[in-house]
Nucleic acid binder design. Sequence first.
DNA 1: ATTTAATCGGACAAAAATATCCGAATAAAT
DNA 2: ATTTATTCGGATATTTTTGTCCGATTAAAT
Lengths: 144, 144
Amino acid sequence: MFSKACEYAIRATIYIARQSMEGLRASLTDISHEIDSPVAFTSKILQQLVKAEIIYSTRGQTGGFYMEAAKMDHLSVAGIVTAIDGDAVYTECGLGLKECSGSIPCPVHDKFVEIRNSLKRVLESTNVASLAKGLKNGDTCLKR
Amino acid sequence: MFSKACEYAIRATIYIARQSMEGLRASLTDISHEIDSPVAFTSKILQQLVKAEIIYSTRGQTGGFYMEAAKMDHLSVAGIVTAIDGDAVYTECGLGLKECSGSIPCPVHDKFVEIRNSLKRVLESTNVASLAKGLKNGDTCLKR
DNA sequence: ATTTAATCGGACAAAAATATCCGAATAAAT
DNA sequence: ATTTATTCGGATATTTTTGTCCGATTAAAT
């Protein structure tokens, strides 16, 4: 469904949000430990998230990654996916056709429009803040 | 969503079914031309489908690939996906966790169960015969 | 029998995704 | 000023996926 990079991105963002909720910055090593991901690869992904302005970073000692409170409330999982994987998962033909559309449909076009729309709807209606809260409460988990 | 191999497999199967509906065998070159896919790679995928007994093949001159009528009616798109990509798309955690489950859920677990179930339901309720008919009627397309 | 046209199977190649390494830049603490 | 702990950026390495090549096998047509 999503690339590995995107999975890490979502997990990292949720963890950063969870920490930022308590005014804490998260360091790279902390993050990759908490979400059980390869450190150097995670670093690249965090840089992408910084460029997309989904998270922010400060360098130097006591530096790290954080998220603004307003962002947590407004950012959906769909926003993270779009930043890392683009919108292919919502828009591209399920059978890989370049010109698949209502007028020149692939055999599963209608069914897939339905599936992708429901996926999009779910991902867009889920904000990062609510997921971070679930994590804080111990209801959910980011590793293993 | 699906691997390239799986996309080609679905398109090839539909085309083979369409030809078998008229008692015709489809050759490798014919198939990869009709679904616009790389010939040698398509060959590998067709062999996988033969091993999975989704399609059948005969060697030698006038040989080729074909599908039994009963199979077309009973085989769903889900069956092809499972044969090529396995059931990861229906079962694996959306965030890549190994042990994600109802008792130890990732933050998006419940939402993803819903999405995956609806995906599974749609793919299982779509048989190859109906898709082959749509192709034969010119309602749908397998290339571009 | 030979030719021809097809699938099968193994080795190989290229491209993309995933992951690592290391030095540079930055900024706080000492 | 120096040390220390951090992110940033570029080069490189590994793994997986995608794709190619070619000879072996098969079976119908000549």
